[in-house]
């Protein structure tokens, strides 16, 4: 039985385990998916990120919050092998390659990871999509990169994923440039998820979207993350988004991690002066 379903209740193909099975093994599974040790990347003193260490476990969603310029995005780029750190180590537990030291391993292996086991959702969908090819081709490209060759099956999977992210399959041959911002963002998510990645990096995935579109996207993301058992590292400056999606938080300021912990504990009982300032600055409704 495949218990993985999309938001409309139709089963998604290719799910690996049921949420019940995942549930049982969630915290007992002691091997972290990603181990980060003493990562430093500075452009200038105070600009970048320093001495960041943490473990990310399967199915865990880690939120990185902090003001603009606090080093969140730099850290994300460094973790996702897009930016070489000055020092430190990132170990990824790969299904294909075993334990992989990201900055000591082969460039080719890293590239395979990026398009199969990893996904990257950019703040601006145009950075993550190919704007001049159809929506279907955008999804299909990642499938072909992992060896899928059969046109019919690629198109079928593309349709399935368009439905999963609530895009009308009638739009499959349209280009992303003809889509609204919210649709582009959902297409980007579909493109990333089609290869069933284990780990997704997200940089302000709801930034720049209308609030009405944002709510729907958040619900979609939350459901997909929990149904597919994804591990996610999400950078956001929006604490409400962090509260909804993240299991635990890392608060950054001037390139340093000032506080970490369970999401609602950090937000409801912040300990560090900066976190207290951040939380108390939210408008109440």
């Amino acid at each position: 039985m495949n218990a993985i379903q999309n938001v409309n209740g139709q089963p998604l193909k290719g799910g690996k385990d049921t949420s019940a099975e995942r549930q049982a093994g969630k915290w007992q599974d002691d091997a972290p998916l990603l181990s980060v040790r003493d990562i430093c990347k500075f452009y200038a003193p105070g600009k970048g990120c320093g001495d960041v260490s943490f473990d990310l476990y399967p199915g865990e969603v880690l939120g990185i919050v902090g003001e603009s310029g606090s080093g969140k995005s730099t850290l994300l780029s460094t973790l996702s092998a897009r930016l070489q750190p000055d020092s430190g180590q990132v170990i990824y537990n790969s299904a294909q390659f075993g334990e992989l030291d990201l900055y000591a391993c082969d460039e080719a292996e890293r590239r395979v990871l990026m398009r199969s086991e990893w996904g990257i959702v950019h703040q601006h969908a145009r950075d993550g999509l190919r704007m001049n090819v159809s929506a279907g081709a955008n999804i299909g490209e990642r499938l072909m990169a992992v060896g899928e060759r059969h046109y019919g099956s690629i198109r079928e999977k593309a349709e399935e994923w368009l439905t999963a992210v609530e895009i009308d399959t009638g739009r499959i041959d349209d280009r992303p440039s003809q889509f609204s911002g919210g649709m582009q963002q959902r297409l980007q998510i579909a493109r990333n998820l089609v290869t069933h990645p284990k780990l997704i990096f997200m940089d302000e995935p709801t930034g720049g979207l209308d609030v009405s579109v944002q709510a729907r996207l958040l619900d979609l993301l939350r459901n997909l993350v929990s149904q597919l058992g994804l591990s996610v590292i999400i950078v956001t400056h929006d604490l409400a988004v962090a509260r909804l999606l993240a299991h635990r938080l890392m608060v950054m300021r001037r390139g340093e991690v000032v506080e970490t912990g369970l999401t609602d504990q950090v937000l409801d009982d912040p300990q560090h002066p900066y976190t207290q300032l951040l939380v108390s600055s939210i408008l109440q409704n």
């Binding site: 969630k26 709510a215 958040l218 619900d219 909804l244 299991h247």
Partner: peptide
Amino acid sequence: PRRIIALREQTLGYVSQFLRVI
């Protein structure tokens, strides 16, 4: 944190008077 989350999912429930949802 992940131990606490697992605990909250299966064992530990909390009901306040305020609804907080998406």
